[in-house]
Each structure stands twice: as C-alpha cells, then as structure tokens.
Amino acid sequence: MAITAVARETVFALRRQIAKIEGTLPERLEAPAGASPDADRPNTDRTVVRRGIAVATPDAFLRTGADRLDDTLSGGLPKAALSEIHGAETRDAGAVAGFALSLASLILKQGPRLPLLWIGTTEIFHEAGFPYARGLHASFGIEPDQLLFSEAPRLVDALWVAEEAARMTALAAVILEVRGNPHRLDLTATRRLHARARMAGRPVFLLRQAAEAEPTAAPVRLILSSAPATPRDTIAGPLDGSIGRPAFTVTIGKSRTALPGQFTLEWNPDERVFEERSQEERAKNPVSVVPASRGGKDLAAASGAVLAFAAVGSPADGDQPSPGQRAAHRRPRRAG
C-alpha cells in the first residue's frame, strides 16, 4: 500500500510539472465511489491533471448567459485564450461578425470599457464589409470610436499586427478576421497568438470565413451560422410578419472540455446577453432565413422548345450589330 501511495504521488508530481510547462492548472476530483481513503490521508480529494484542461476561478471564463452552452464549455469561453469562430460559407460573415461583437459586448459589460481592435486583410474587408457604426451602440452598447480597425494589405501583415496587439493589456479584446485556410495561418502562428493572449489575460477571437477545420492552438472552436428570427413579442402577443432578435446556430466544433453539440442562441440587445431558444420555439418557427419574393414563389421557368441557331461564321443580316452597338463593343472593358 505504501509503494502504491508513493508511486501515485510521483505520478501526481510529474503531472503537476507538465501542467506548469503547458500552462494548465491542476483539477481537483473526488475519489471514486466506493474507494477507501488512505489511513495517512483522511481527505478523499485527489489532485490530478488532465491534459489541456485548465481549472481556474469563475471569472476566468466569459459566460454567454446561455446556461446549457456555458455548462457544456465548463464555464464558458476562456478569457485569456485564442478562440476560433468559423463561418462555413462566405454568406455567414454577417452572423460570425455579429456573434463576435456580442462576445465583445459581454466583455465590456463585465470589465473596463477599453477599446477593441479588429484586424483583417483588404480582401476580407472588401468581401464582408465593416460593422455598421450606428448599429454598434443600439445592438451591442459599443461606441463607434471604441472599435478600432486595422486593414492590412497582406495576411503576413495582419498576423504581425495581431501578435503585437494580443500582448497589449490596453485592449479589451483583439479580433482577427481571415478568409479560407491560408498557409501562413498554421499551428505555429496560432500558438503564438494563444501564448500572447494568455500572457496579457485578454481574449483573441479568430474569425475564419469559408474555412475548413484544421489543427490550431485554440482550445475552443465554434461554428456559426444564422438562425431564423422569431416574430417580435408585444403585449398582444407575437407580431406576425415582424423580425425579432438576431439568432445564431452555434455548433461546438472543438473543445478540450466538451463534446460536440449544437445550440440556437438569441442575442438580447437590451440586457446584452444570450438566451437559448427552446425546442418548442424552434419547432414553431418555420420562417426561412431568406424570405420568398414579394410577389410569391419565384420558381424557375419550365424549359421551352429547342431553337436552331445560325451557323458560326455566317450570321444573318438581322444578327449584325447596329452602328451604335459597334461603338459600344469597341470600348475597353472595366479592369477587375
């Protein structure tokens, strides 16, 4: 029994040393049910270390307000860490940006109102655009001059700015937005971002538009898409045909403490907190994300008869362009 206890203490000491090297903290677990405590150690608590799991104070995690999601993530998103937020398609860029701004709003609500830095390449800003300034305050409680932007011509420049900004404690959070799976954004680059976020005690959100999952140093990866909005609630009940709060479909793609799962969250701009939509609310909301045309269903026209065209190289007289059309044809095309 003594040899077993000594061996166990040796293993625990090695695990603690590994935890210090990896930057994780030990986790306390209760002894298994039915196990008899040692005579020399009446306390049945045992300190063990699980790889990749960091147990810290509750304020080390950013709680979204959706209890089931927060409990699944063992307290919420880590504040001092790199977190990935993925959009499967380019059209999900608005949902990804809205979710990131919601998280930034939660950070500002809980801590000092420091500025936010949003970093991206010229390509991603031209494709997805910028957040609407007037909507920042109304929906997220963020002042327009509180959100700073850094537009870099190349990804290598954006990564350099992100690494330098991630170590600054004068920023509430750093948002880095990229597109696809660039070669430079590899495991080494994400390790540097994650290490700087841990040292500064600030979150770094990596927004990836139209990207596939790949190995990174981020402890958590969330996959975002827009969810159908429910009608607005009034005193008389739901208002038909109206658009309620913004909603997100959140899928846990990677987590060191949770299994994959999917949640439908609504952002409450008044309370500035997420609320999970129940199964009943999801079932009774059949409205599509993109409504049909105003005149009704816009179905494709049925195929018509096959037409015979004139032979190539011998156009008919009626097919010749007019003098005005010839001049238009000679104009140079617009670059790009």
Rank of each mutant, 00 (worst) to 15 (best):
L147I: 01
L147M: 05
H126Q: 10
T121A: 03
G135S: 11
E143C: 02
P131L: 04
S150H: 11
P112S: 13
Y132S: 04
L148G: 00
I124E: 11
R113F: 04
G111I: 08
F149M: 14
Y132V: 08
E123A: 11
I119M: 09
L108E: 11
S150N: 08
Q146L: 12
E143D: 12
L147N: 00
I142A: 02
T121L: 12
D145P: 00
L114R: 09
S150A: 13
P115Q: 06
Q110A: 14
L116C: 07
F140T: 00
A128W: 13
L148I: 08
F125R: 07
L114A: 01
E127R: 15
S150G: 03
I142Y: 04
R134I: 01
S150T: 07
F130Q: 07
R134H: 11
F149V: 08
L114F: 04
F140C: 01
R113A: 13
P144Y: 14
G111K: 09
I142Q: 05
E127H: 06
L147K: 07
I119S: 07
F149A: 05
L108V: 00
F125W: 13
P112D: 14
P131G: 01
F130K: 01
G129Y: 04
G135K: 08
P112V: 13
L116W: 11
G135M: 09
L108Y: 03
E143A: 13
H126W: 08
L148V: 02
Y132I: 05
F130H: 05
L117M: 10
D145F: 06
F125C: 00
G141M: 12
H126E: 12
Y132G: 00
L108G: 04
W118D: 01
P115I: 15
P115Y: 12
H126F: 11
Q110Y: 01
L114M: 06
L136F: 03
L114Q: 10
E127K: 10
A138H: 07
Q110W: 09
H126M: 14
F140N: 06
T122R: 10
P144W: 06
G129N: 15
L117Y: 03
H137N: 08
I124K: 07
S139N: 14
F140Q: 04
P144M: 05
T122M: 10
S150R: 08
R134A: 03
F140K: 07
G120R: 15
Q110T: 09
P112A: 15
G120C: 04
L148W: 07
I124L: 12
G129T: 11
L108H: 06
T121K: 09
L148D: 00
I142H: 02
K109Q: 13
A138G: 01
L147P: 01
F130W: 08
L108I: 03
Y132M: 05
F125T: 09
G120H: 08
A138Y: 11
F140R: 10
F130A: 07
E127A: 15
G111Y: 15
L148C: 03
Y132A: 06
E127S: 14
L147F: 09
E123N: 05
G120N: 01
S150P: 02
